[in-house]
């Protein structure tokens, strides 16, 4: 599904965080956002995800306007985000983190858990089957019974990706998937993203590591001081002098 973000403005008091930001993620595309610290990337994600309300502008997924919807309603429509600092459910095991994330569980309702009987058992069995596959796919099967709070940074990022997948999304917003990840897992995460994309899931990715990002996206937006500075294919964008200057102090 195509995500269209139009003319988003957001200020906190006199501080303008986002200024007339527009972008679009075509169905099944991989799009990246780069920008220096404080450019407004995470705020933009919070606005798209629904935890922060924009002052003006609109967010449309395919033909549905999401702007006034709560995060839950956006997730139900297939738009799921991850967080810059991974937020696993610390007191649940890795496996339970994935199980709990599956959408529309009858067993999670009060009635279902009390009198759901066979229907809930069947539902949970089906969820567990999906979870076992996903654990293998993300190479988390060896730590499946560990508490999620004990995972390494990279594994947390993988777990967050897995949890998002349990919702069966059509578009995943990834906030710095490579931050705090060791180089071995770097390739792992990139491969998983590309594989998932081939199955039709779209990605919008914020990332500081330009090299890693340019390997997985086909299109890139540069956000500087709350505005879109440039937009295009990764090598085109990175060749623009302004971008080099704004982002790397010209060092690229």
């Amino acid at each position: 599904m195509t995500l269209t973000v139009s003319s988003i403005n957001k200020s906190y008091g006199k501080l303008e965080i986002l200024k007339d930001v527009s972008l679009s993620v075509p169905a099944g595309a991989r799009v990246g956002i780069i920008g220096p610290n404080g450019a407004g990337k995470s705020t933009l994600f919070a606005v798209i995800g629904g935890s922060v309300q924009p002052d003006s502008g609109s967010i449309v997924l395919e033909d549905k306007t999401l702007t006034d919807m709560r995060p839950q309603a956006r997730a139900e429509l297939g738009l799921v985000r991850t967080f810059q600092v991974a937020r696993p459910f610390q007191h649940l095991t890795v496996r339970d983190n994935l199980i709990v994330a599956a959408a529309n569980q009858y067993g999670q309702t009060l009635i279902g858990t009390l009198v759901g009987g066979a229907r809930v058992r069947r539902e949970q069995d089906a969820i567990r089957e999906r979870v076992e596959e996903l654990l293998k796919f993300l190479k988390l099967d060896k730590v499946a019974d560990n508490l999620a709070g004990r995972l390494s940074g990279g594994q947390r990022k993988l777990l967050e990706l897995g949890r998002a997948l349990m919702v069966k999304p059509s578009l995943i917003l990834l906030d710095e998937p490579f931050a705090g990840v060791n180089p071995v897992l770097f390739g792992e995460i990139s491969e998983r993203i590309v594989e998932l994309n081939q199955k039709g899931i779209g990605f919008l990715v914020i990332e500081h590591n330009i090299q890693a990002l340019s390997r997985i996206v086909s299109e890139m937006y540069v956000l500087v001081q709350g505005s879109v500075l440039a937009h295009g294919a990764p090598d085109e964008v990175l060749a623009i002098q302004e971008v080099q200057h704004a982002y790397m102090g010209g060092a690229l």
């Binding site: 839950q72 997730a75 799921v80 967080f83 007191h91």
Partner: peptide, 15 residues
Amino acid sequence: EAIRDDEVAASALGK
């Protein structure tokens, strides 16, 4: 348990 651990993350997953 998930809600108690992290309400924001749970909301983002549609809970």
